[in-house]
Design a binder for these strands. Structure first.
Length: 658
DNA sequence: TAGAGAGGCACC
DNA sequence: AAACGGTGCCTCTCTA
């Protein structure tokens, strides 16, 4: 057994199991510690679905306040059994982002996560309930490398972040001689590797008429980078073991530190249990994944590659070699005689460019009628579709042809979910089924989408208690038309205004988005405020709360910090967050009713299902009923749409109805 | 040569 | 007085 010592605001010991004889000490530790932090180390990356062939779990770690035990689960079943026993024995566990470790041990070792989630805190959830902001947003952050320096030990943050680079550097520094370099008659340098020329000698080179230069070395672990270090580092590397051993200690300590910081209101609302329950549901969605239509996806990639190539060649005629380069596009625009003026659209100011750069976005290019701009737009569009959606789905398929989204149930500063990875569900083009055709319900199933009607506006109406807006919803009136009529503008502009006000926007933003004069936009916003005075009042009320407390409490007792000077955003946080919690509430109800097996994705106000074809109608009606939200004075109806096998077919059937 | 920053674009 | 909220991913460019 190896024992490592470190200091984390006091002495810390890490016991590293090396042989089965070391296990009794571990058993004793587990028996003495009913509550433990837990963590795993893997071969690297997040593609747990590729286990066991292309993905593996290397270490499993348990810890308390000052002691950790590291099990080399990669080295044999006996250590895996010890891990399983400890997980079962523990009364309480904690982990940072528990879903990841659970996926790993489920895929690699067949551990059933269900009994574990009932007793495992996720420190990421607790951290979010204290401060929902990421580090980029001026918050404490939600990653372990953010939480540790803030809550535990200021020096530790840099060490965690730097440790993988240090380990990689260390491995790269370990080299061995792998061959000779020699020069031939034409003065070309040649490499003779021992692996290709076993038993080669300097003399043998000379006898072939070559002149010997020198031996050459290579790292004994090959080229180790940040991405490959976790799979290559030997299990007895001390820096690695230290890094691994600290994590369960952090997970243990963070629970005790974070709990008292969670606002009383949130505790009373039961948010902790609630967030852990939705986390378990989304875990199951991640694992189930979504079937990919391999042929459809491949054909689209081929088409788009050709399309991009064709239009890129056209753009290159005017000197735009890289269609993604704004600098090249600006230069080419000047060459074809386009005049940039003081009023030309600019990007947002940054450190390097305080006044912003000339913008070359979609709206700018569309306003310039020229074969070059047309070519750039077409090439860019093809490129975006190919790489962001089709290739992403195609390349990330598992052995069964499914892709597994990363669903972060509690992620955004408003608590909204985020969906990452192979299915960028929150960004897929929505107008047509073109991209969504990639995703298929299971064989014999159909895709069904059920979404909330006007979720955020209904929440705005309920939270603000605005009489006219509530009345409009109750009577089934057209809210967008109502806003439009107040200022005598088209419905489309009324709709833009409705959303913009809920986002905290104003006339200036409306003018830009709708392409109307500022004066007219002001009239529309005034019309909105006259029609729904309660909404403006509510916005003010939340802004005052934010100013007074530094943040707001939402309808579910959630604490959201509001940036000073940005109090106008408070209303949006309140609405967006409450809407998210309505979705979560119904997902938990669906789970209770046995629908988790059918759920594929959750996209803000929409849930995507795979239902058996012959029961689709019945299950859809049942799910709609469960999703219909009518609590605490908030009413949000849900409407389902039954498609064919692909997700895209749902959109096309919807389209054909109109 | 990896990473950070910025710009751009897709969504609710 | 007015205030555009929340995401993720890709490409290009510059730098440590």
């Amino acid at each position: 057994m190896k024992i490592l010592r470190a200091d984390v605001k006091g002495p810390v010991r890490i016991y590293v199991v090396e042989t089965p004889e070391d296990l009794p000490g571990f058993y004793e530790f587990v028996n003495d510690n009913p509550f433990m932090g837990f963590d795993t180390e893997t071969t690297g990356g997040f593609n747990w679905w590729d286990a066991p062939d292309n993905y593996g779990c290397r270490l499993a770690q348990f810890g308390n306040h000052d002691t950790a035990w590291v099990l080399p689960v990669e080295r044999g079943e006996i250590y895996v059994q010890a891990m399983k026993w400890a997980l079962g024995k523990a009364e309480r566990l904690s982990a940072q982002n528990r879903g990841f470790d659970l996926h790993v041990i489920e895929e690699c070792f067949g551990v059933d996560p269900e009994p574990l989630v009932k007793k495992m805190w996720d420190t990421k959830i607790l951290a979010h309930l204290v401060d929902s902001r990421g580090r980029e947003q001026g918050g404490i952050g939600l990653k372990l490398e953010d939480l540790v320096p803030h809550y535990i030990d200021a020096d530790m943050g840099a060490r965690i972040k730097g440790s993988m680079n240090e380990i990689a550097k260390d491995l790269n520094s370990q080299k061995e001689v792998v061959g000779f370099k020699a020069r031939n008659k034409d003065k070309e340098t040649l490499e003779f590797r021992f692996s290709e020329y076993p038993g080669i000698t300097k003399e043998a080179l000379k006898s072939q008429g070559l002149s010997y230069i020198r031996e050459f070395q290579e790292g004994i672990y090959g080229k180790v980078s940040k991405d490959t270090v976790w799979g290559k580092v030997p299990l007895d590397h001390e820096g690695y073991l230290l890094y691994a051993g600290m994590d369960p200690i952090f997970a243990y300590r963070l629970v005790k530190i974070l709990f008292p910081l969670i606002p009383r209101k949130s505790l009373r609302s039961g948010l902790i249990g609630w967030e852990h329950r939705i986390n378990w549901v989304t875990y199951q969605l991640e694992r189930t994944g979504y079937l990919v239509d391999e042929e459809y996806t491949r054909l689209r990639i081929e088409e788009l590659t050709a399309e991009e190539e064709k239009w890129s060649e056209v753009a290159a005629r005017w000197g735009v070699q890289l269609i993604g380069s704004s600098a090249q596009i600006i230069e080419a625009l000047v060459k074809i005689g386009h005049k940039f003026t003081r009023d030309s659209k600019r990007t947002k100011p940054s450190k390097a460019h305080p006044k912003g750069q000339l913008s070359t976005d979609d709206s700018v290019l569309k306003s310039i009628d020229h074969p070059m701009t047309e070519a750039i737009l077409k090439a860019k569009s093809a490129s975006k579709k190919r790489s962001t959606w089709f290739e992403n789905a195609y390349k990330n398929r598992d052995r069964a042809g499914r892709v597994h989204p990363g669903i972060n149930a509690l992620q955004a500063r408003s608590a909204r979910m985020s969906v990452t990875g192979a299915i960028a569900a929150q960004t897929l083009p929505s107008g047509t089924g073109y991209v969504r055709h990639c995703f298929l319900a299971d064989p014999g199933h159909v895709t069904v989408c059920i979404d909330f009607a006007n979720q955020e506006l209904r929440v705005a109406a309920a939270l603000s208690g605005d009489k006219r807006m509530l009345e409009a919803f109750a009577n089934g009136e057209d809210l967008h038309q109502l806003t439009a009529d107040a200022a005598g503008v088209p419905r489309k502009i009324g709709k833009m205004c409705n959303f913009l006000v809920a986002y905290g926007g104003g006339a200036k933003a409306l003018a830009e988005q709708a392409g109307i004069p500022l004066e007219e936009a002001k009239k529309v916003v005034d019309g909105f405020n006259r029609t729904y005075p309660g909404v403006a009042e509510y916005a003010k009320k939340k802004a005052v709360e934010a100013k007074r407390l530094g943040g707001i409490f939402t309808a579910t007792g959630r604490w959201l910090i509001v940036d000073p000077g940005h109090e106008y955003a408070a209303i949006n946080y309140a609405i967006q967050s409450a809407a998210r919690d309505i979705t979560v509430s119904t997902v938990l109800d669906l789970d209770k009713a046995g629908f988790t097996q059918y759920m594929r994705l959750i996209v803000h106000d929409e849930i995507v299902f795979s239902f058996p074809k012959d029961r689709a109608e019945e299950l859809t009606r049942q799910a709609e009923k469960i999703m219909e939200f009518n609590k605490q004075g908030i009413y949000v109806p849900a409407e389902g749409e039954i498609g064919l096998q692909s997700w895209g077919s749902v959109l096309e059937l919807e389209e054909s109805k109109h």
